[in-house]
Computed example of a mutant assay.
Amino acid sequence: MSYDYPKKLVQLQLAMAALQAEYARFVADLPRSVVPLDAHEGREGLWTARDPSPGYTEEQKARRTAYEADLRELSAQVSAHPYWASLPPEDRVAARQGLKKVEPGDEQAGE
């Protein structure tokens, strides 16, 4: 089934997808723990050896917190958009999954 998503809803979804990708790149480069941790040796079958972790800097903590707040806000705007109420309940999950597949330049968006 094809859905005629409102333009604003598509814009919100695209903004959220872009921010999720940016956030994923950011956290991939963070130390393994928020607080500093010493290295430890692994023990076969029980745990893995780990290098020391310097912990997050204050800037890294602030940026992560900001990313997460922005993602929550975009997620709330998408999930609470009035468009969803215009659909029969049995179509909402499929419509939401379809929206997640919209890409920049897709002509699916209505006005």
Rank of each mutant, 00 (worst) to 15 (best):
P88A: 13
L71W: 07
L46E: 11
A28F: 01
Y23V: 00
G105N: 12
T48M: 07
T57D: 02
V34E: 14
V34N: 06
S2I: 14
D38M: 13
Q60H: 02
P104I: 08
G55W: 06
R43T: 11
R25T: 07
M1F: 11
E103L: 15
M16S: 13
M1K: 10
V27F: 03
Y5L: 11
L37T: 08
S2Q: 13
L12E: 08
L12C: 08
L9H: 01
G110F: 10
T65Q: 10
E68Q: 15
L99R: 06
L87P: 01
D29T: 12
W84K: 01
R43S: 08
A69L: 08
L74E: 03
S2F: 09
V10P: 05
V102Q: 08
A39M: 12
G55H: 03
D106L: 04
E41T: 11
P88H: 06
E68Y: 03
R32G: 15
A18S: 10
L99K: 03
S75H: 10
L74G: 08
E103S: 13
A21D: 09
Q97K: 14
L74N: 07
Q77C: 05
A28Q: 07
D51T: 05
P31E: 03
Y56V: 02
Q13C: 10
E90C: 11
K100C: 01
E44N: 02
W47R: 13
L71Y: 09
D4S: 14
R72A: 15
A66G: 06
P31S: 10
L9M: 04
R63S: 04
W47T: 09
V93D: 14
G110K: 13
L87N: 00
R32A: 15
S75E: 12
R50Y: 00
K101G: 02
P54E: 07
G55L: 04
R43Y: 05
A95W: 05
L19C: 06
F26M: 04
A80Y: 00
E58Q: 11
P88L: 08
V27Q: 12
S86V: 02
A66V: 03
R64Y: 00
E68K: 13
L74I: 09
Y3M: 06
R50T: 10
